[in-house]
Structures are given as structure tokens and as C-alpha cells.
Amino acid sequence: MSDTEVAARLLAEGEVEIIAEWLRLQETEGGGGSGRISSAELRVQCDRFLALLRRGLNQGAETAQDAAFAELRDMLRDLSRSRAIQGFTPTETASFIFSLKEVTFRLLQKDVGAAWALNRLLDAFGLYTFESYQRAREEVIARQQREITELSTPVVKLWDSVLALPLIGTLDSERTQVVMENLLQNIVDLNAEIAIIDITGVPTVDTLVAQHLLKTIAAARLMGADCIISGIRPQIAQTMVHLGVDLNVVTKASLADAFALALRRVGQSVTRVVPAARAGA
């Protein structure tokens, strides 16, 4: 009988004991993620892992990359991913494997060959959970970045046919693309005549930012909307002059000024209402 087959047999024989001890260790060592998953759920995961592990061992698989462990790797990947999303630390996540290692190391002492084979496998699976965890975290971060990209460039309807686009932060090219498409879509959807682009929140206006603004202005014009740029702070205005950048559109110091101008252009005006009580007093 090979080492892996012996290991499979010992795991089967001691199954009840192993699962109990494994669960206990995970709960005391924080592998349960401080109540983030139920013990019933953890129990299901343990049962399944052990069953898949035994199946692979019975097929003589000696390495974690073996095809016989494909299903087990899938399971670990899903487990790591869901734990990453649930906010488990990497250590808590990998302790799923490493606590099992502790249990089986004790139980398999009768057969050094089997213990050694299993030890090596569990180490490899432990690393695999680490890697899967990390990959899942990176995906989460990338997704959040994309969401922020879209979230931070909202187009606001100020009035019938008047839109505002408050830009905040660094205008790297990926984001600018989203901003531009978003604005153009809104111009079409709302049949806008005027789009106010407010750059109060843009820290640096260099030639790349200027070029993005110019392209947006030109595209908006093609869709039948005029742009007004607002929020050009004095230091930015000076710098743009030195750079030699000319945006070739109406600019206003503040969003309020730009809005007032936009209203006038679409034939609206804002008037002060004199309260009746005061008028009579």
C-alpha cells in the first residue's frame, strides 16, 4: 500500500475524531473568523474538504497540482474568495488548512510515510489558500477602483437642459474616458443645451488634463451642447496661461456664476421673492 493510500485509510478510520478536533481548533484559534461563519457552515466545509482529500489520496495523487485534486482546489478557491469578501484575515483563512495539519500530524504518527506525504500536501494546499485569498482581494480592490471611477464622476441635472459635471481628483486617462462618455450620454438623454464642467476639485491642470477637457468640449458641441468651465482657481488660471493652454470656452470663477449664466442662456432667471410680512412692516 502506498503512503497516500495509507493516509487515506487512516483519515477514514479517524474521521469522527479528526473533524471534532479540527472544528475545536478552528474555533479556539479564531479560524472561525470570530463568528463570521456559522459552525454548521464550517462543519460542511470540513466534511467536504476531508472527503475530497481522501478521494485524491485514494487515486494516488502525491502533489497538490494533481488532476485528482482539481475539485478540492476549486473548493479551496471558493472558500478563500468568500472569506476574503467576508473580511477574514489571510491567517484566519489559511488556518482552515493549517489547523487540520496539526490534527492529522498527531493522528498519523503511527505511519511516518503517510504522515509525511499528507504534511507536504497540506502545506501546499495552505499556500494555495493564501494565493487564492490574495487574488480575491486584488479583484475586490480592482472592482472597487472601477466603481469609484464611475461613482466620482456623476453628472448632475441642475435645470431643464442644464447639466453640471463636478470633477474631483486626478484625471488619469481611464477615468477621463468614463467621464466623457457619461457626460455625452447624459447630454443626449436629457437633451441638454448647456453642460457646466466644474474643476474646483482638480488639483493640477496640465496639458493632458487640458487635452481631455478640449476633447470633451468638442464632443459635447457635436451633440448640440455648449460647455462652460467653472471653478478655475486663480493659481490654476495663471499656470494655464504659462502653459499656453486655451480652452476656447466661456469660463466662470464659480459654479454659481456658471449656473446663473446658463439660466440666462436658456431664457430663465432667478428673482428674489420679497416676503409679504416684511413688505408690510
Binding site: P203, T204, V205, D206, T207, L208, P234, Q235, I236, Q238, T239, H242, L243
Partner: peptide, 17 residues
């Protein structure tokens, strides 16, 4: 000054790119 900060930051941005 704020103007001088903005000037050198913008120049740095151009040259870095």
C-alpha cells in the same frame, strides 16, 4: 506660495509624463 507650488507641480507633471 500657492501660485509657485502650482507652477512647479504642473511643470513636474509635464516633464514626468
Amino acid at each position: 506660495s500657492l501660485v509657485d507650488q502650482t507652477k512647479i507641480v504642473t511643470a513636474a507633471s509635464e516633464l514626468a509624463r
